[in-house]
Amino acid sequence: MKSKHEEMHRQFKKQTKTRTLQIRAVQILILLSFFIGWETAASARWIDPLLFSSPSRVWDLFLVRVQDGSLIMHTSVTLFETILGFLLGTFLGTFLAAILWWSPFLSRVLDPYIVILNSMPKVALGPILIVGLGPGFTSIIAMGALISLVITTMVVYNAFREVDDNYVKVMKSFGATKRQSFFGAIFPASYPTMISTLKVNVGLAWVGVIVGEFLVSKQGLGYMIIYGFQVFNFTLVMLSLVIIAILATCMYQTVELVEKKLIRHRT
């Protein structure tokens, strides 16, 4: 009986592993065929390599730009702006949500304004930010933050309100102050919502920063894209896109890591 089950379990594990391997293999195959197809199409002139570039050109440019240091500079500027914009938007948004939770009066007063701000396309405020904060990285970070700020405030505030009142009752029955109830029950109970907001905010921060760099046009990956576009160097545009894709994925993965740490015990 026992050995039969052991054998079946071994079979089952083997099948599961094989399946995972198959999926990985197909994923890699798709990636490879994309690049090979792109390269072939470019060298066979099915597509115009001047417009669509090719993997080998992007790679060559990558090496050149790494050596002259300009790529590292642009990438680190953008990364710095994005991370800061992301953190600012998330923390300020959560902080505002906490204030709204604290004061129901204020939250009702501000409700229509929050709705207006939320429906507003934030990138349209770009020119005003640049006029107000100067054409530098401050306004770009502000853009990255602003784009996620309002939605974070709304979503997190709703999460705070939807926390089961009985958790707060438990806290209160021990004589907890409002502050203790907030940090002991409301805040930790909202972790799952906060994490999903983080995930959305990663994407939003990138949008804000890239658009900001388009407008300011001084440095960064967004600047590389707009510059490459203006001088018809699409290899440069492609290179920027590939780097953005890689970095954005890394940021997203980091958030998932935080998620696993924070909410592994919930059911």
């Binding site: 438990v170 029955s173 015990h265 059911t267």
Partner: peptide, 26 residues
Amino acid sequence: GYMLQQDYLFPWLTIEQNITLGLKTM
């Protein structure tokens, strides 16, 4: 001491942290 209709243990805390919640609050 008040025991609510359901247990309302805090799912993000261990049993140890749950039972000392009141003491911590105090």
